[in-house]
Design a protein around this nucleic acid. Structure first.
Lengths: 392, 392
DNA sequence: CCATTCCGGTTTTACGTATAACTAGCGACG
DNA sequence: CGTCGCTAGTTATACGTAAAACCGGAATGG
C-alpha cells in the first residue's frame, strides 16, 4: 500500500524492452512472470542470492524520482525540476502540487549519491582536527557547522581516530566526495595527505611561512602571550615558568617564542620551560616538579592551556601554596573549565567558534574563486582569580 | 604514446570538452585541440559559462578510472577490479602493477559519489547528538568513530546546529547518503524525522518502552543513581537535594525516579528537587538557592551531571561551606572536569566511548540482518573527595 | 581429437539525478 | 497567414563506478 512501486518492478518493465509498460504497474506480476525466462533467472541468481530482501543493507529500497514521476503521471525530469525548486515558469502550479504530494506519499528523498555524481560537487567540507574531546576543537566544529548550515553545506569530520593505526587516509575515511578541506595544523599526521589531495584547503593556526598555497585562518597567539606577559610583569612578577604543551606544533611554538621575547624586554626576569602532555594529571606532575626544584621559587606559572593550568592549581594546593597569593597561574583557551575551577582562571580567550566560522567562510571564498586573504583573529586576556601581585 | 584503440579514442574526443584537463596532462593535447567544434561549443555554453575552470567548485577535475585505464593500457573494468582488490585470479600480477602505478601517477582517487550510487550503500552512518561541546557526546562520537574506522565505515554528525533554526532535516544536513542512524534520545527535535526516515536506527539512552522498532543501547543509569544513594545513606546522610537537569529527557527522568525510589526505602529521609540548565553558572545559582532556603540545611547534594556538581562546589565555597565536611556533593558522567576540580568529584562513571562503540556495533548488526538484542551498559560509582560522613 | 575448464581480460549495463535540447499547442503580432 | 514567443512539458544524456556477462585462446581431460 504505502510502498506501491518498487525498483524491481521498474527494472522488470525495462527488461521487457518497452517503457510503455507503466500502466502495468498494478498487475504486472503476470506479465513479469511470463516475460523472458532470462529475466527471472538473472534476478534469482544475482539480486536475491546476494542481497536477500530482508537483510539488504542496500539503501536502494527507497522510492526514486522515477517512482514519483509514475505516481504523479509526469516524467522524471519534471519531478527533478519540482524537487529542485527550479520549476518557476517551466511547470504549472497544479503539476508541481501533484508531484509534491506524490513525493510525500512515497516518502521520497532524493538520492544524494546520485545528485552528487551528477553535479560533480557535494556541498560537503571536511574538517580535520586532532580530537573532539578537546573542547576547543568541539567549538571550532560548532562554529564551522553553523556557518555551513546557513549555506546548505555539510561538514564531515576527520578526527584522527586515536589508536586506529598511524596513517589512515582522511579522504577515504570521510566516505563522501568532498568539495574542500579545513584542517587544523595540529592534525599533523594527516597534513601531507591533505596537501596532495588536490582539494581547496584552508589551514587553521598554521605557520604562515609554510602554508604555501593554502588559505590560512590564524589566532593572534603571539599577542595573547604578550598580554599575559605584560599582565604578569605589571604585577611585579620576575621568576616565570612556562608550562608548555609537549606537542611539536606551530600553535605552541609561537606561544613559547612570544613569551620568551616579551620577557626579554624586562631586565631581571627568569624563564624556565617545562613540558607536559595536555592533561590535568600531567600538568599537575610537571608543575609539582617545577615548583619543588632547588633555588628561588617561581612566582608565576604560565600554561599553554587551561587544562594544564587546572593541573597547576592542584599541584600548588598540594604543596601548600595558595593561588594566587603565593603563585600566579595563567591558562590559555578559556574553555568552560576556566570558570569551573576555583579560583577561576586568568586566561586568554580564544574565539574557538570564530575560528570555525572564519575557516568555513574562507573555504567558501576559495570555492567561489578565491584568493581569500588570510585572517588573523584577535584574542583577549581575561583576568580572573589566579593572578595577583607578586610576593603578596 | 601510441593511440591504439579507435573506439576508446572516439569516446575520449566526445568528452574532450569537459575532461580536457586530464587528457592534456597525459599528452593527448593534439587530438584534444582538433576535437570537434561541437564539443568545444558545448563546453563553452555550459561548462565554462557556469563554472569557469578556475573558479570551478567541481570535484570533477580529478582523474577517473577511465583515465587510469587509458594510461595503463587496459579497460576501465580492469582498473575497477584492481582498485577494489578483487582481482585475485582475474588479473595478472603484471597488469595489476601497471594499473596501480598509473593510478598513483595520476593521483587517482575513486569518486565516492559514483561508487555509492553504484553499490546502493555508502558504509556511512549518521550520529545524532545534542551538542559536541558536551564532552560526553564528544566521547560517544570518539567510540563510535573508532569502531566504524575498524570496519571501514564513516561517521557523519548531526549535532543540532544550535541557533540555526528549529526543524532542519538531519538527513539533508548529512549531505551524504546514509546506511543507518545512531541517535541520542536527547536530540529530541530530530527524533520524529529520524523515525520516519526508514533507515536502520539505533537509539542511545532512550526509554525502552518507546523505542519501538529501534534497537537500543542504554546505560544503567538507575543503578548508578542507586549506587549514589546507597553510598550517601551509608555515610549517614538523610537530607538530600537533587540538582536535576532542566531537560525533559528519559536520561534524566530515570535518574530522578531512581533516586527518589532509593531514598524511599530509608525512613527519615528528605528529598528536594531543584532544576537547572547544564552549565556551571546555572548549577551555582541553583545550588545557592537550595542551600539558603529556610529550614535545616541539606547535607548531601546529588547532581545530574559533573558540570552541575562543579557549580555546586563553587556555591558551597561562596556560602562558607566546606566540601565535603559540611556538604557532600556527587556528580554524574565522570567527565575530565571531575578530576580537574578540587576536591575531585565523587561521581558515576559512564562508559561514554563504550556507548558509541556499542551503538556502532549494534548498527552494524542491524545492517547485517538483525535483530540485535538491546544492550544495557553497567556504570560505576567512583568515590573521590566530595563525599564524606554526614555532620562531620 | 573434441569438449571442458581456466586464465586474463573486455564489453556492457545500471545505479538516480540534473539539465540541455527539443517539441507540441496556442495566442499574438506584423 | 506565417512566424514568433511563450507555456508546459518530454526525451535524451552524462556523471564515474562495480560487476555481470561475455570471449578468445591455452591447458586439460577423456
Amino acid at each position: 500500500m504505502s510502498r506501491p512501486v518498487t525498483s524491481t518492478d521498474g527494472s522488470d518493465e525495462a527488461q521487457g524492452g518497452t517503457v510503455a509498460g507503466a500502466a502495468g504497474s498494478v498487475g504486472a506480476a503476470g506479465s513479469a512472470g511470463v516475460a523472458e525466462e532470462s529475466a527471472g533467472e538473472r534476478s534469482g541468481a544475482s539480486g536475491d542470492g546476494r542481497w536477500p530482501s530482508i537483510r539488504g543493507p542496500r539503501t536502494g529500497a527507497r522510492a526514486t524520482s522515477r517512482d514519483v514521476a509514475r505516481v504523479a503521471g509526469v516524467s522524471q525530469a519534471t519531478v527533478s525540476l519540482v524537487m529542485g525548486e527550479k520549476w518557476r515558469g517551466r511547470v504549472s502550479e497544479r503539476t508541481a502540487d501533484s508531484v509534491r504530494s506524490a513525493a510525500r506519499s512515497l516518502g521520497y528523498r532524493p538520492n544524494l549519491a546520485a545528485r552528487n555524481l551528477r553535479l560533480g560537487r557535494t556541498r560537503t567540507a571536511l574538517l580535520v582536527v586532532p580530537a573532539l574531546t578537546n573542547e576547543f576543537f568541539a567549538r571550532v566544529y560548532t562554529g564551522a557547522a553553523r556557518v555551513a548550515a546557513e549555506q546548505g553545506i555539510g561538514v564531515v569530520l576527520y578526527p584522527s581516530p586515536e589508536g586506529v593505526g598511524p596513517a589512515r587516509d582522511p579522504f577515504a575515511s570521510a566516505r563522501a566526495t568532498l568539495d574542500g578541506v579545513i584542517a587544523s595544523s595540529m592534525a599533523a599526521e594527516a597534513l601531507t595527505a591533505l596537501r596532495e589531495g588536490g582539494l581547496p584547503l584552508v589551514m587553521l593556526d598554521s605557520d604562515p611561512e609554510r602554508a604555501e598555497a593554502a588559505t590560512t585562518v590564524n589566532l593572534d597567539l603571539a599577542d595573547g602571550m604578550r598580554q599575559v606577559a605584560g599582565h604578569l610583569l605589571a604585577l611585579g612578577h620576575r621568576r616565570f615558568v612556562h608550562l608548555a604543551a609537549d606537542i611539536d606544533s606551530w600553535t605552541f611554538r609561537v606561544r613559547a617564542a612570544a613569551l620568551a621575547e616579551a620577557l626579554r624586554g624586562t631586565p631581571g626576569t627568569e624563564l624556565t620551560v617545562v613540558r607536559a602532555p595536555l592533561t590535568v594529571a600531567d600538568g599537575l606532575h610537571a608543575a609539582e616538579h617545577a615548583l619543588t626544584r632547588p633555588g628561588p621559587r617561581p612566582t608565576a606559572l604560565v600554561c599553554d592551556d587551561d587544562v594544564l593550568a587546572a593541573g597547576t592549581c592542584k599541584a600548588a594546593r598540594r604543596l601548600g601554596l595558595r593561588v594566587p597569593d603565593d603563585l600566579s597561574v595563567t591558562g590559555f583557551d578559556d574553555l568552560s573549565l576556566a570558570t569551573a575551577v576555583e579560583p577561576e582562571l586568568t586566561t586568554v580567550r580564544l574565539p574557538a567558534e570564530g575560528v570555525g566560522e572564519a575557516g568555513m567562510r574562507a573555504l567558501m571564498g576559495v570555492l567561489d574563486g578565491g584568493p581569500v586573504a588570510p585572517r588573523v583573529l584577535p584574542v583577549e586576556l581575561v583576568v580572573r582569580g589566579t593572578t595577583t601581585v607578586a610576593g603578596g
